[in-house]
Protein backbone atom coordinates (compact mmCIF):
# COMPACT_ATOMS: atom_id res chain seq x y z
CA UNK A 1 0.00 0.00 0.00
CA UNK A 2 2.75 2.48 0.96
CA UNK A 3 4.66 1.55 -2.15
CA UNK A 4 1.53 2.28 -4.21
CA UNK A 5 1.03 5.69 -2.58
CA UNK A 6 4.66 6.56 -3.28
CA UNK A 7 4.26 5.56 -6.92
CA UNK A 8 1.01 7.52 -7.27
CA UNK A 9 2.66 10.62 -5.80
CA UNK A 10 5.42 10.27 -8.38
CA UNK A 11 2.88 10.01 -11.23
CA UNK A 12 0.68 12.87 -9.99
CA UNK A 13 2.64 15.17 -7.67
CA UNK A 14 0.62 17.40 -5.37
CA UNK A 15 -2.35 15.06 -4.94
CA UNK A 16 -3.11 13.83 -1.41
CA UNK A 17 -3.21 10.09 -2.10
CA UNK A 18 -2.43 9.20 1.50
CA UNK A 19 -5.56 10.73 3.02
CA UNK A 20 -8.15 11.64 0.40
CA UNK A 21 -11.13 9.33 -0.15
CA UNK A 22 -12.84 11.41 -2.85
CA UNK A 23 -10.14 11.98 -5.44
CA UNK A 24 -12.55 11.73 -8.37
CA UNK A 25 -15.65 13.15 -6.67
CA UNK A 26 -13.73 16.28 -5.56
CA UNK A 27 -12.08 16.70 -8.95
CA UNK A 28 -8.53 16.13 -7.64
CA UNK A 29 -8.01 13.61 -10.44
CA UNK A 30 -9.17 14.31 -13.99
CA UNK A 31 -9.80 11.73 -16.71
CA UNK A 32 -6.31 12.48 -18.09
CA UNK A 33 -4.81 11.79 -14.66
CA UNK A 34 -6.74 8.52 -14.45
CA UNK A 35 -5.37 7.43 -17.82
CA UNK A 36 -1.83 8.40 -16.77
CA UNK A 37 -2.18 6.39 -13.56
CA UNK A 38 -3.64 3.40 -15.39
CA UNK A 39 -0.77 3.40 -17.89
CA UNK A 40 1.88 3.54 -15.17
CA UNK A 41 0.23 0.92 -12.97
CA UNK A 42 -0.20 -1.47 -15.88
CA UNK A 43 3.53 -1.23 -16.58
CA UNK A 44 4.52 -1.47 -12.91
CA UNK A 45 2.29 -4.37 -11.83
CA UNK A 46 1.89 -6.16 -15.15
CA UNK A 47 -1.90 -5.97 -15.03
CA UNK A 48 -4.62 -5.05 -17.53
CA UNK A 49 -7.33 -2.57 -16.61
CA UNK A 50 -10.66 -3.05 -18.40
CA UNK A 51 -13.17 -0.30 -19.26
CA UNK A 52 -15.49 -1.71 -16.57
CA UNK A 53 -12.81 -0.99 -13.93
CA UNK A 54 -12.68 2.71 -14.73
CA UNK A 55 -15.37 3.91 -12.35
CA UNK A 56 -15.07 6.65 -9.70
CA UNK A 57 -15.35 4.15 -6.81
CA UNK A 58 -12.10 2.47 -7.89
CA UNK A 59 -10.13 5.72 -8.11
CA UNK A 60 -11.50 7.75 -5.22
CA UNK A 61 -8.74 6.60 -2.84
CA UNK A 62 -5.41 4.83 -2.86
CA UNK A 63 -7.02 2.03 -0.83
CA UNK A 64 -9.74 1.43 -3.44
CA UNK A 65 -7.10 1.43 -6.15
CA UNK A 66 -4.96 -0.99 -4.17
CA UNK A 67 -7.90 -3.37 -3.82
CA UNK A 68 -8.58 -3.14 -7.56
CA UNK A 69 -4.94 -3.92 -8.34
CA UNK A 70 -5.15 -6.99 -6.05
CA UNK A 71 -8.30 -8.17 -7.87
CA UNK A 72 -6.71 -7.64 -11.28
CA UNK A 73 -3.57 -9.52 -10.24
CA UNK A 74 -5.68 -12.47 -9.09
CA UNK A 75 -7.73 -12.50 -12.30
Amino acid sequence: MEELIQLLEEIQPGVDFANSTSLIDDGELSSFDVVSIVGELEAEYDIRFRPMDIIPQNFNSAKALYELICRLKEA
Binding site: S31, V34, V35, V38, F49, P51, I54
Partner: peptide, 11 residues
Protein backbone atom coordinates in the same frame (compact mmCIF):
# COMPACT_ATOMS: atom_id res chain seq x y z
CA UNK B 1 -17.46 10.47 -24.47
CA UNK B 2 -15.07 9.99 -21.56
CA UNK B 3 -16.67 6.79 -20.27
CA UNK B 4 -17.65 5.10 -23.53
CA UNK B 5 -15.00 6.30 -26.02
CA UNK B 6 -11.98 7.88 -24.27
CA UNK B 7 -11.37 5.14 -21.67
CA UNK B 8 -11.96 2.23 -24.09
CA UNK B 9 -9.53 3.85 -26.58
CA UNK B 10 -6.85 4.46 -23.97
CA UNK B 11 -7.25 0.88 -22.67
Amino acid sequence: MKDYVFYPITL
